[in-house]
Design a protein around this nucleic acid. Structure first.
Lengths: 131, 131
DNA sequence: AATGTGAATGTAATGTTATTACATCAATTG
DNA sequence: CAATTGATGTAATAACATTACATTCACATT
């Protein structure tokens, strides 16, 4: 999935997220795109829904915010479960993938016949630079 | 931590959560406690803050809802990172603790000098009974 | 070029979740 | 008893997200 097949609104939203050094809320994105004709939250949420679907963007559940994927050209969906550290001081987000954790969670779910949908792993704290 | 040293509001909120078979939103709790004199969201949020602090209740970040801890008498804070499966059909939540996952996350954080605060692990999907 | 279809968009209104601000009350302690 | 601290009550507002409905755009088929 490259960024070329995105629609205008999807492209604008992805661009804003890509150029941000910290996660953004939907309403912050909206404000940044007012000059581009955005008027309503739904324009942002609809674009985000598609970007999430494409694996170009991640939603950080614990802070109600969105970040561009760290490796959008590869399609993040290929990498299995995505985990994040989120610095509560500077907002810096680091995305990582750990197959051991993934296997462990899968095994737990399998043992209980739990059919896994989306998995969230988020570590909030303080990054090295802010400590 | 037993339930005895809770204040009136904390006790009421904990009671509602304890008797629910699925997670509840703050506003749902508020509605259930109207007859007990609750009038405003803040009464619920303040009680929840304390219950979270005591380890008697967990917040499910991915669905903006709250559940009573599965083993409140032991103080969940003693069990390290808490993970959950959340059935999107029936709402059933299962709490579990996995030291391998915990060690792995701790190691990742340590490697990057990331000071870990709260960690969220939530698997949403479909439970065995709903499949 | 006209038409049909599905995806994307525009807009308003509303619903849901959470916090700020400020006043009051209750328990404890010096 | 005064002072402090934690809990509570209440109103207002902020922040996040969805529903509903009308319109437009892209594109395939005729």
């Amino acid at each position: 999935m490259t960024t070329q097949q995105l629609t205008k609104n999807q492209g604008l939203v992805f661009d804003v997220l890509s150029h941000s050094d910290s996660p953004l809320s939907a309403y912050t994105i909206l404000d940044k795109l007012r000059d581009n004709g955005f008027r309503a939250p739904l324009q942002v949420y609809r674009a985000l829904d598609k970007l999430l679907e494409f694996g170009l963007v991640h939603r950080l559940e614990s802070i109600n915010a969105f970040v561009a994927c760290a490796h959008p050209n590869e399609g993040c969906h290929n990498h299995g479960i995505t985990a994040f550290t989120i610095c509560e001081t500077c907002g810096k987000v680091t995305e990582f993938h750990d197959h051991v954790i993934e296997d462990r969670l899968k095994a737990f779910a399998k043992d209980r016949n739990f059919k896994t949908g989306k998995t969230t792993i988020e570590i909030r704290g303080t990054c090295a630079g802010c400590a």
